[in-house]
Design a protein around this nucleic acid. Structure first.
Length: 306
DNA sequence: TAGATTTGACCCCG
DNA sequence: CGGGGTCAAATCTA
């Protein structure tokens, strides 16, 4: 990750982390509030607090500390994981025999994948069919394997992996999407996690081939050129397909981001991009408060996980 | 009864 | 050699 020389003073970093943690707690409260009472005036104060909290955190961490903070947050979340909660696989295992060799196909995650951190891993506009669950050594929670319901009838190759990361209310999940949908049914999938929550920032993580970053870059460019406030699924897919062949790490044009923000500087204050050579910094931190004008939905996309 | 989920077995890859 | 990803029979559910 970031080198030691990039670190900010510990006090600043701790303060920033506390702010982010507080922001997340407020966001969780807001989320539960919104689920029972959608009146805006009721939650407006909370929303403002969340926004300010994250903005303060980002300003403390910029320009080099965001990745470190996220990593630290992740480790804090690991620490807060409830002990003894092992999901459903810990008890009563049945013995069954299988006469044939199985699990022969693609064994390792393909490059065309991206990861999100969300409290609602099951509602992304597509129909999924669970085909497996595994206890993962490095996690206290089992990992669930899903593929598109239309895999058989339409040959849709899309799949996703869902893994719970904590016991919070609501619990957060790491969702890794693999490959694009080829099916026609259902709502547009978040080929990019464009459905950021208005109450939480979202962080995107991508495969090692930079294709995900290219998606974002291209996506933002398309916004910039069209001036439209809504991203169509076909636009996203087309853009991705057009750029996915290149292997060159892209650069994120911050002037593009800036021009996207009708309010001026808030967008840049809410976004950070760290194209370092190591994997951890290949992600994009977005503040949905400031991205809301771009037509992001109101799902519960949240922090990135690597 | 059809479709979805559960779960142990299997096997490739690092 | 072990972990992770997948398969498919058994089971569940609407």
């Amino acid at each position: 990750m970031a080198s030691p020389s990039m670190k900010k003073p510990t006090s600043d970093r701790e303060a920033a982390i506390q702010e982010v943690v507080r922001g997340r707690e407020l966001a969780a409260r807001l989320h539960s509030l919104l689920s029972v009472d959608p009146r805006r005036e009721l939650v407006h104060g909370l929303m403002e607090e969340v926004s300010q909290s994250f903005t303060r955190a980002l300003s403390l961490l910029k320009p080099t500390g965001i990745s470190e903070a996220i990593q630290e947050l992740a480790s804090m979340e690991e620490d807060s994981v409830c002990s003894g909660n092992q999901g459903s696989e810990a008890s009563g295992e049945k013995v069954r025999t299988s006469p044939h060799a199985k699990g022969v196909h693609s064994r390792r995650r393909p490059l065309q994948s991206w990861t999100i951190f969300t409290s609602t891993p099951h509602h992304d506009g597509h129909e999924w069919r669970k085909y497996g669950q595994k206890k993962i050594l490095s996690s206290d929670f089992p990992r669930s394997y899903y593929r598109c319901t239309h895999r058989d009838d339409q040959g849709c190759p899309a799949a996703k992996l869902v893994q719970q990361k904590d016991c919070n209310d609501p619990p957060m999940y790491v969702v890794t999407y693999i490959r694009h949908h080829a099916c026609k049914k259902g709502l547009p999938t978040p080929q990019l996690p464009v459905n950021c929550s208005p109450s939480e920032p979202c962080m995107l993580s991508f495969g090692s081939d930079w294709s995900g970053i290219k998606q974002v870059q291209s996506l933002l460019s398309s916004f910039n050129s069209t001036g439209e406030g809504h991203m169509g699924d076909d636009v996203i897919s087309a853009k991705f397909d057009a750029i996915s062949s290149s292997n060159d790490p892209p650069s994120l044009d911050l002037t593009t981001l800036e021009s996207l923000d009708p309010a001026g500087d808030d967008m840049l204050s809410g976004m950070s991009f760290s194209p370092n050579s190591d994997g951890f910094d290949k992600h994009l931190l977005m503040d949905p408060w400031n991205l809301g004008g771009l037509g992001f939905g109101d799902d519960s996309w949240s922090f990135l996980e690597v």
